[in-house]
């Protein structure tokens, strides 16, 4: 590769066909309110972590649903589980539990070493 001075870029498209959505399925089963999210961003706006670091609970939901799991794992650690997000959610999504379940799913999955 060195002889060309560049590498073949990886696409940044979400490949829905090949992504692993087992984490999302794990959460859907145990916390059906996860399906009701309409991506309004209320949770992210009120989030302490989100105001101080690059963390968005809204985006995290999307990334879980699309199976962008590497990014989810990175992001999950930042949540302090304070639960303020639940208070503002207009769709009654148990947002805090989604973070808990996501961590659980990664721990249980052989594919992801946590």
């Amino acid at each position: 590769m060195e002889k060309f001075g560049f590498f073949i870029s990886k696409g940044r498209q979400i490949n829905y066909d090949s992504n692993d959505r087992s984490i999302a399925e794990y959460i859907y089963e145990r916390e059906p309110s996860f399906r009701r999210c309409i991506e309004c961003g209320g949770c992210s706006a009120t989030c302490t972590t989100g105001s101080m670091t690059k963390f968005s609970l809204r985006e995290l939901h999307i990334l879980i649903k699309r199976g962008e799991n590497d990014k989810v794992m990175e992001s999950l650690k930042k949540c302090m589980l304070c639960g303020k997000c639940i208070l503002v959610c207009p769709r009654g999504v148990n947002t805090r539990n989604i973070v808990v379940l996501a961590k659980q799913a990664f721990q249980k999955s052989a594919a992801y070493a946590i």
Binding site: R12, Q13, I14, N15, Y16, D17, E39, R58, E59, I62, L63, R66, E68
Partner: peptide, 12 residues
């Protein structure tokens, strides 16, 4: 584009 993820998406 999955505008809420800020990424293009491809699906069959």
């Amino acid at each position: 584009e999955d505008t809420l993820a800020g990424r293009p998406l491809k699906m069959t």
